[in-house]
Design a protein around this nucleic acid. Sequence first.
DNA 1: CTACTCGTTCACTACCAGTGGACACAGAGA
DNA 2: TCTCTGTGTCCACTGGTAGTGAACGAGTAG
Lengths: 225, 225
Amino acid sequence: MGESDASAEWVRVGERIRVAREAAKLSVRELARRVEVSSSHVSQVERGLASFSVRALYNVVSVLGISMDSLFEDVPSVAGSPAASTAADPAPPTPDGPLDDGGIVLRRAARPTIALTGGTRWERLTPKPEVNAEFIEVVYPPNPQAVPPPKDYIRHSSREYGIVVQGSLTVQVGFDQTVLHAGDSIAFDSHIPHRFWNATAEEVRAIWFIRDDPRGGGESNHAHD
Amino acid sequence: MGESDASAEWVRVGERIRVAREAAKLSVRELARRVEVSSSHVSQVERGLASFSVRALYNVVSVLGISMDSLFEDVPSVAGSPAASTAADPAPPTPDGPLDDGGIVLRRAARPTIALTGGTRWERLTPKPEVNAEFIEVVYPPNPQAVPPPKDYIRHSSREYGIVVQGSLTVQVGFDQTVLHAGDSIAFDSHIPHRFWNATAEEVRAIWFIRDDPRGGGESNHAHD
DNA sequence: CTACTCGTTCACTACCAGTGGACACAGAGA
DNA sequence: TCTCTGTGTCCACTGGTAGTGAACGAGTAG
């Protein structure tokens, strides 16, 4: 699956080790001595030519006083490596076929987008507006200082389904609040007051499906920001 | 540092993995499948009889949605270098809150999964089964040799919405065929014969919402493979 | 010039991460 | 009862790779 692309992954880990080592003003040999491996091996690992065992890696973070996670950084996402997978895709043109013209398929670059205040974007995922439904990707911009969520709760009659594709989204439904990480999903009746916001320094992306109640509720007062 | 006493250290790491796995309600075999190692190896690691490679360990924390550091825990917070504090809070465990218990939120690691023939997996994204709807993530395994798609077209009455999150998925709806790349989305009435398959060497992931027609169609004969 | 340290290169190997097949046990049908 | 299917575990085996050690060229001091 996703990152088994070990080599590429190790290059980055190695680079981070080197940065940390230099910040600590240790020579390759000195680090090697403390980690209890050979200096040649340290050199190779830092340049992505080899990899550390878990034991060695554990010693490295101990000696350098850094966190294990900081070496990997782009931890779990749906794809194992979020930006990687998206970026990896050279986006081959995929010539428009009948499906594209038939109102079936919508290319990523062609999504109708609405920009909300605060930088949040709604991107429609359906070629044409749907009746009694919204299928959208919402992009929540970074919110460095843990900015307080918008004041206004939202209520409308329908049911909502969402999955966080990238980043961590803070959600509040009713009186309860939690943080959804990449891959976590949610489903709830939207007549319960709810709000979502991004309290991290990373952009958050989520896929939402909002299903309007076939009978009754006409309210369409969403505000996923 | 200290711990060069590898074995003793691994016992604890293994125990923590087991705890996390059980919390996620995954079987040894299921975790093994997702981490891409053998179940026997998982079993051995959890009991301290063997150890994971860094690659495997990385997959474990991704799959279980836990932080790397949480597996080692007694890291060096005071280990001389204040640099440690920098990378402090990568992935707060997000302790289960009321939302998790309330049937609202579903953590990634806790998704109910059905394995279809051919290696395709359906992962339900809703904490409980929905009425007249499916919100799922479908994982299509690599299909190195451009294997011909399954023979049977699918027909049922409802409407389907999908977005490709990773990889490239070949779709055929009616007589038209195209390839969806990451970010491309699709929406169509599912009474039109359709089929999807992965003709690439990379795993494909897609989010689907299948909306059963409130009136009429009872057919539930999907086959996203 | 020598003498030392720096990071690097490379051929080599021992070890262990990971496998596959088997096992015993527990439930659920039939 | 006997048969499945799923659980976790056991164990003999192997391939890859983590790790070694000796040598290299470049820098810098004395």
